[in-house]
């Protein structure tokens, strides 16, 4: 048993108009990682390298203890992969697809597949081309889940789903994690989904990882402080300030190293702390991206 299901070390991939630059990340077995990035940030390239679909120019990739892309055939037996552009055969039924996948993967779990049919409200006799977008995503997910893979890799699994389907999908992903030997990596630009179910969060922007940590650490350390400066006071210097906004005597700071002791330090320095706001993952992500991009252009 490996403690780490996915390991990237110094991975780079150079395209004419895009570079994935020196990516390192580690996904412990039994956890969910959410990969958050804007469109074109490098999420899909990262996932394709992980799957051995794209070969990295530099760096080491290990998935379930297998070296990628060299041992991808062996690794893929244990990986379930669902992506947006996943092609199912339009003129075949879902039942046909289920039989097809079952014939390739010996671990196929038929009772579980049938449970998923009911939970996802899918009809096996229906042809793929007659399915809505949400039903197609659920069908693809069913085909991946019923193989009981040790690692699930999902590229934007909840994009374009209605609220009911989204909750069904998130619930099913959590159910997979009831077994602590299974691991999930999913990418999304919907930070709400990531915030709800992820253990680990990785922010990616312009081909680089800009932050990667466990979710509780993110939510604990990032705070927005609203201050009122007394006329003679200067803005106190605080650790981890990422952004300074607001105006003149009413500055608003964002820090990524919040500590409750900061509040009394500010008050002592003549800057009354009016409010300490927790931040959502979305706000954290946006501030993070802006501050990095500003540094790059300076």
């Amino acid at each position: 048993m490996n403690d780490v299901s996915v390991h990237f070390e110094g991975v780079s991939k150079i395209y004419p108009h895009f570079t994935l630059d020196d990516l390192s990340l580690e996904l412990p077995t039994g956890t969910i990682m959410g990969l958050i990035g804007a469109n074109g940030a490098g999420k899909s390239t990262t996932i394709r390298i992980l799957m051995g679909l794209v070969h990295q120019d530099r760096g080491l990739v290990h998935v379930l203890g297998r070296e990628m892309p060299r041992e991808q055939a062996a690794a893929k037996l244990d990986i379930g992969f669902v992506s947006e552009d996943m092609r199912l055969y339009g003129s075949a039924t879902l039942a046909w697809h289920m039989n097809f996948v079952r014939s390739i993967y010996p671990q196929w779990d038929q009772p579980y597949a049938e449970t998923l049919l009911r939970r996802f409200d899918l009809k096996p006799r229906q042809k793929i081309k007659g399915l809505s977008h949400g039903q197609r995503v659920k069908a693809a997910l069913l085909l991946a889940l019923a193989r009981r893979p040790r690692l699930l890799v999902l590229d934007e699994p909840t994009t374009g789903l209605d609220p009911v389907a989204r909750q069904e999908v998130l619930g099913e992903l959590m159910a997979v994690l009831a077994d602590e030997d299974r691991t999930i990596l999913f990418s999304s630009h919907n930070t709400l989904d990531v915030e709800q179910i992820s253990d680990q969060i990785t922010f990616i922007d312009r081909g680089r990882i800009i932050a990667s940590d466990n979710k509780e650490v993110f939510l604990d350390r990032w705070r927005r402080l609203r201050l009122v400066l007394s006329p003679e006071a200067d803005l106190p210097s605080l650790p981890g300030v990422v952004e300074i906004g607001g105006s003149g005597r009413l500055p608003v700071l964002v820090t990524n190293r919040f500590d409750p002791a900061m509040v009394s330090a500010c008050n002592d320095a003549g800057a009354t702390v009016q409010a300490v706001d927790p931040m959502t993952l979305e706000e954290i992500f946006v501030v993070n991206v802006h501050s990095r991009r500003e540094k790059q252009t300076v």
């Binding site: 039994g30 956890t31 998130l170 994690l177 602590e180 709800q196 179910i197 253990d199 466990n214 979710k215």
Partner: peptide, 17 residues
């Protein structure tokens, strides 16, 4: 921890905390 995380649909790490 895992049972509760699954039934609440929140991450394991949150319930663990």
């Amino acid at each position: 921890i895992r049972q509760l995380a699954v039934s609440l649909r929140v991450s394991v790490i949150t319930v663990k905390r």
